[in-house]
């Protein structure tokens, strides 16, 4: 019983973090209808930047959040203008962007190996002190709580942006229908660039806290994270940022239950969930149809 309660609470916290992991991928998809196959590598890059800030400059991961966010926002702009407009004009944007971002992920991995080597890197969870906190009689590391609060903060920001700002309303219009938004005079290009950068920023923030939830970082961790992120956003709903949170929660609780009760099969779960949802409920658990044929 104790284990059961622990598993549920751990699953919820794990899930909130994975909602953040999927969020960046989903808002980019929502606006550009492109799958950023380098998403996991942006998370990896964010974690290495945080590691560097902590290890060499002694900057606490929480303080690192605005720094990393600013770096990734500025990184996003040139990337966007170098690739995306050209891709949108090409004859098969969906497929070609998929392959292009894959190439980008290879470049990023190679660069990180070049500068940091192949070893695992960690920020120890003691970066936030060694205190724990207790919910329902279960003790958890304080780093988990901080990670969850940051993730919830990020969700709040995305919600506020989409619902309560002018740019956000325009963004929702682009998500609903790009062509109509263009016709109605919205600066689609600017919104796309902004959202692309936001997507990278969210990924990098997930990267900062990945040490405390996923464990040590290493250059080739990106591919698996991209697949898991994709499973989560398909589970929630493609192109619906807030559905991502639900997808993350389901994923988190399911993984923790698998680990507790069928540990050797835990790894297969995201893949099976992904295929099952795509085949049987392609619109996701809360969304509208996104599958063709």
């Amino acid at each position: 019983m104790n284990l059961f309660v622990y598993t549920i609470i751990a699953g919820i916290m794990y899930g909130i973090f994975f909602g953040l992991v999927g969020m960046g991928l989903n808002i980019i998809f929502g606006v550009l209808k492109m799958i950023n196959l380098a998403h996991g590598d942006f998370i990896m890059l964010g974690s290495f930047l945080a590691y560097w800030l902590y290890g060499f400059l002694g900057i606490n991961p929480l303080v690192a959040v605005p720094i990393v966010a600013a770096v990734f926002f500025l990184l996003g702009l040139p990337l966007y203008y170098a690739f995306v407009p050209r891709l949108i004009k090409s004859k098969d944007p969906e497929m070609l962007s998929f392959i292009l971002f894959f190439g980008l992920s290879q470049v990023m991995e190679a660069l990180v190996v070049f500068f940091f080597g192949n070893n695992q890197r960690s920020i120890p969870s003691t970066a936030f002190g060694s205190a724990g906190f207790t919910i329902f009689g279960q003790r958890f590391p304080i780093a988990w709580l901080i990670t969850c609060l940051v993730a919830l903060g990020a969700f709040g920001f995305v919600y506020w942006y989409l619902q309560h700002t002018r740019m956000g309303r325009a963004t929702r219009a682009v998500m609903a229908n790009r062509d109509e938004a263009l016709v109605s005079g919205i600066d689609v290009e600017r919104i796309s660039a902004l959202v692309f950068c936001m997507g990278l920023v969210l990924a990098s923030i997930a990267g900062i806290f990945s040490f405390f939830v996923i464990g040590a970082s290493y250059p080739s961790m990106g591919a698996e994270l991209t697949t898991v992120s994709f499973a989560i956003i398909v589970l929630g709903s493609l192109g619906d940022p807030l559905g991502t949170i639900l997808g993350g929660l389901i994923y988190g609780v399911a993984v923790m239950f698998m680990q507790s009760y069928f540990s050797s099969w835990a790894e297969i779960l995201p893949y099976v969930l992904l295929i099952a949802v795509m085949l049987f409920r392609p619109e996701g658990l809360v969304g509208k149809a996104a599958r063709s044929a």
Binding site: T7, Y14, M256, Q259, S260
Partner: peptide, 8 residues
């Protein structure tokens, strides 16, 4: 992540 496994 071994947290849940450790509790198990």
């Amino acid at each position: 992540n071994y947290s849940v496994l450790l509790h198990g």
